[in-house]
C-alpha cells in the first residue's frame, strides 16, 4: 500500500519538476524560483520515500511527530509566500497607478 502511494507521489513530483523546467524555458519563471521549486519537490520525494527522515528532524528540534514538522514548515512557507505575494501585488498596483496617471495627464 505504502509502495503504491510512494510511486504515485513520485510520478506527480516528476511531472511537477518537468513543469517547472518548462516554465523556466518559457521565461515565466526566474532562475531563483526554478531552484526553489525543484528543491521543494525533491524534498517532497525524499519525505515520501524515507518517511523516517522527517522524524529525525522532529527529534532534533524537539517536535513530537515527523508529520507535525511537515505541517509546521508548510505553514511557515505558505505564510511567507502569501506575504511576498501581497507585496508584489502592491508593487503592481503602484505600477498600474503610474501608467493610468501618465495617460490621464497626456
Amino acid at each position: 500500500m505504502l509502495i503504491i502511494f510512494q510511486l504515485l507521489i513520485s510520478i506527480i513530483v516528476l511531472i511537477a519538476i518537468a513543469n517547472v523546467i518548462a516554465k523556466k524555458k518559457d521565461n515565466t519563471l526566474g532562475p531563483k524560483a526554478m531552484l526553489f521549486w525543484i528543491l521543494f519537490w525533491l524534498a517532497v520525494v525524499c519525505v515520501v520515500i524515507w518517511p523516517n527522515s522527517v522524524q529525525l528532524i522532529a527529534d532534533y528540534i524537539g517536535i513530537g511527530r515527523g508529520a507535525d514538522v511537515v505541517v509546521y514548515s508548510a505553514l511557515v512557507v505558505l505564510f511567507f509566500l502569501v506575504f511576498k505575494m501581497n507585496i508584489k501585488i502592491e508593487g503592481l498596483k503602484r505600477d498600474l497607478t503610474k501608467v493610468v496617471r501618465e495617460k490621464s495627464l497626456e
Binding site: T97, V100, R101, S104, L105
Partner: peptide
C-alpha cells in the same frame, strides 16, 4: 483628468498634484 481604471481618492488627488506641479 480621466483615470482609465478606478484607483481611489488618494490616487486622484496625486494625479491632480502632478498636474498642478506641471
Amino acid at each position: 483628468l480621466s483615470h482609465g481604471v478606478n484607483l481611489g481618492q488618494g490616487a486622484s488627488l496625486e494625479t491632480g498634484h502632478e498636474y498642478a506641479r506641471k
